[in-house]
């Protein structure tokens, strides 16, 4: 299902380390409309774990995480 998901906003933080992925994800969430799907793609391992924590704190929905060639994609719905 995650392969076919259509993202409304893509946040590319490949190569960035903490705290940049979390900060960029939050900026995208602020700009997004209710119902929008935000895809965060990155490579920093700690961020892959921190972003789902943030999704929980912000009361958003975590649709899933896909990983290929060491790049993770986190799908969030506002």
């Amino acid at each position: 299902m995650l392969q076919t998901i259509q993202s409304d906003i893509v946040v590319d933080v490949v190569g960035e380390t903490c705290p940049v992925p979390l900060v960029e994800m939050r900026k995208a969430v602020m700009k997004a409309k209710k119902g929008d799907i935000i895809e965060v793609k990155g490579t920093h391992p700690a961020s892959k774990q921190e972003i789902p924590m943030a999704v929980d704190s912000l009361g958003l929905e975590l649709l899933g995480i896909r990983e290929e060639d060491q790049v993770w994609h986190i799908f969030i719905q506002k």
């Binding site: 903490c18 705290p19 900060v23 939050r26 921190e50 943030a54």
Partner: peptide, 22 residues
Amino acid sequence: EGESVVLHLDMKGISVITGSAC
């Protein structure tokens, strides 16, 4: 890291800062 604590506290509605310059 302080910066992670700060960001996660912010998402819980609490404003603090860190001595980390990241």
